[in-house]
């Protein structure tokens, strides 16, 4: 009896560890494949170089680093207020019936493949931006809009759960003191749910920075540092996905090195975000 229990425990532990092992192996592999490029190009040259032309051995990924940051920031500017507003409405103002319809609908949004978002962006947003704002249409703006919508489900679901987790007595206490609904939300519910909302923002950011397919279709993928919202842009993930099929030798290593840089950036962002969340909860 006891032995069997022990056996199952060990098995489950191994299974639990397997995901960590897989992560470890992936990291090991990316670094093994990417580090030679750093050695050859030079870490500083690789990260701060502004020209990317693998055929001529010019391997600088600063435009793509800038691209990833700008596009992700833009997506958050679009997605965070929309998502949070939606979550507040669902949790605090919507009737049970409306919420029962809206919530699954928003979650359904998460099930739409990214290539579909990209295609809609390509056929609707890109021409719209070209006609109304000028430029080629393939732009930071198009990517930010598409990504902003793509991160909505994450943003809404996670912050909705955070808002729901605030005990009803908090609201009731405020209302009993004579506040309006909005005052109760603004002064009590939102501050109480802040860690959860921040967590939602972090998850949404992770989704935005990692998205590839939809961005490739609407961003234009030029290797320049964007100076306007109407400029085309290439992100780190797009750079890898666009060229991996063709790359050999140093070019291939440079793409893995791009992956290493992306990995480091995401780790730093996640860590900072975690520290911020922890700081805010105290």
């Amino acid at each position: 009896m006891r032995n069997k229990e022990k056996l199952v425990e060990i098995l489950l532990t191994l299974i639990g560890l397997s995901s960590v092992t897989v992560l470890g192996l992936i990291i090991l592999f990316i670094f093994k494949e990417g580090l030679p490029a750093f050695a050859q190009v030079g870490l500083w040259q690789f990260v701060t170089g502004t020209r990317w032309s693998p055929g001529k051995n010019l391997l600088g990924i600063l435009p793509m680093i800038a691209g990833s940051f700008v596009v992700t920031a833009g997506a958050l500017v679009v997605g965070l207020p929309l998502g949070l507003g939606c979550a507040i409405y669902l949790s605090e103002f919507a009737t049970a019936k409306t919420a029962a319809i809206l919530k699954p609908t928003i979650e359904l949004l998460a099930g739409i493949p990214s290539v579909v978002f990209g295609f809609i962006g390509l056929t609707l947003m890109v021409p719209f931006i070209r006609n109304f704002f000028g430029g080629p249409g393939f732009s930071v703006l198009a990517s930010a809009l598409v990504l902003g919508i793509m991160i909505l489900p994450t943003m809404v679901s996670v912050s909705y759960d955070a808002l729901r987790a605030v005990p009803p007595v908090y609201r009731e206490g405020m209302l009993a003191l004579g506040s309006t609904d909005w005052q109760a939300v603004k002064m009590v519910v939102l501050p109480a749910a802040r860690p959860g909302i921040l967590a939602a923002a972090i998850l949404a950011m992770g989704r935005a920075i990692g998205e590839t397919m939809a961005v490739i279709m609407v961003a234009g993928n030029s290797t320049i540092i964007p100076t306007s919202f109407l400029d085309p842009v290439r992100t780190l993930t797009s750079n890898i996905a666009l060229e991996m099929g063709y790359a050999t030798g140093l070019h291939r290593q440079a793409l893995f090195a791009t992956g290493v840089v992306l990995f480091v950036i995401i780790s730093i962002l996640n860590l900072t975000a975690r520290v911020v969340v922890r700081g805010k909860t105290r």
């Binding site: 990317w52 032309s53 055929g55 001529k56 435009p63 234009g220 030029s222 320049i224 085309p232 790359a247």
Partner: peptide, 27 residues
Amino acid sequence: EEGSGTRTAFDELIMAGSNVAARAIVQ
């Protein structure tokens, strides 16, 4: 995108050593 057969052929047939501008949109 750099490395594609069409791009490589275009580079050889037209560009003759010049670079396609970094500003060019890549599909």
